[in-house]
Design a protein around this nucleic acid. Structure first.
Lengths: 149, 149
DNA sequence: GAATACTTGACTGCTGCGCTCGGATATCTA
DNA sequence: TAGATATCCGAGCGCAGCAGTCAAGTATTC
């Protein structure tokens, strides 16, 4: 998990794609103009999204991208996992060799991060592009809740 | 929210502090040795933790740091918010001037991130240093769940 | 007054992010 | 067949933050 703005852009782009792709493919140039994201940057993102099977591409004039599945079947978690590369946050157990440096407490905190990551992925798995598009997230957010953080 | 390794180190350090601070202050040198974290780096982290009121300091020989409150009252969310500076993830509404660039969908995704952040903070608010120390996170994690992500 | 340990500030190498540029390939239209 | 449109692909750049270091300073205890 990374939760950088890379994932945010990708979600914005796919929401745009879902809302404008009813008849035929949508070009990245259109998305770039509407969402104010650099075209070249979008190309990078969609390359990853395509390799992950989230979108299909149509080349040539009148071409562009299409959602592989419906907006209701496209989960936000898949988008973020496709774009923001994993980057193992714990380096516990495998990787690096030393299996958690002896200290028990250390592994205890690792469980915390594992639990947190599960929690986040679980939440994002329950949200589809359609949910975002139809404004169904608004309900989950209190009228004018916290500013910072 | 940032969820970088800075916050992980801070939590590890405070868990160490809680488990070794029953009688008197704990020096950063001790924590550094036990947790294998650079002393100078710990100094930076504890400066922030102290300013946030999470720990108290005792100077001079035999000095060190103490938890301001009990291990059960010290929440993980407070630690992370103290160490990983906010960095507004949406830049919607305030900040930057333009109040969300017109597009409705854009604000719709902002609601998503707001909801996610609330979700994360809510989860971390429910976890105390004592919970981590007593291994209560283990229960929340499936035996051998996901690897990547 | 010496040792201990917190306190502060500046500095460094590195990595990833956001973004650009240049070009190659496929496809549709005239 | 030519050219326009669009996806593809790889290299590269400036910047900011992270992880960590170094070098001082100050307070406190013995």
């Amino acid at each position: 998990m990374k939760l950088g703005s890379k994932g945010r852009y990708a979600v914005m782009a796919l929401v745009d794609l879902a809302s404008n792709g009813d008849n035929g493919p949508v070009s990245l140039a259109d998305i770039s103009a509407r969402q104010d994201i650099s075209l070249s940057y979008l190309e990078q993102l969609f390359a990853k999204l395509r390799r992950s099977g989230l979108v299909r591409s149509v080349r040539g004039p009148g071409g562009g991208y299409l959602l592989s599945q419906g907006a209701s079947e496209t989960r936000v978690s898949d988008i973020i996992l496709a774009v923001d590369e994993p980057i193992q946050t714990t380096r516990c157990g495998e990787m690096g060799g030393k299996p958690c440096t002896g200290r028990l407490e250390r592994c205890a905190t690792h469980d915390l991060w594992r639990a947190l990551r599960l929690h986040i992925v679980d939440f994002l798995s329950g949200v589809s592009i359609a949910d975002v598009l139809d404004g169904r997230m608004r309900e989950l957010v209190a009228p004018d809740s916290e500013q910072a953080a």
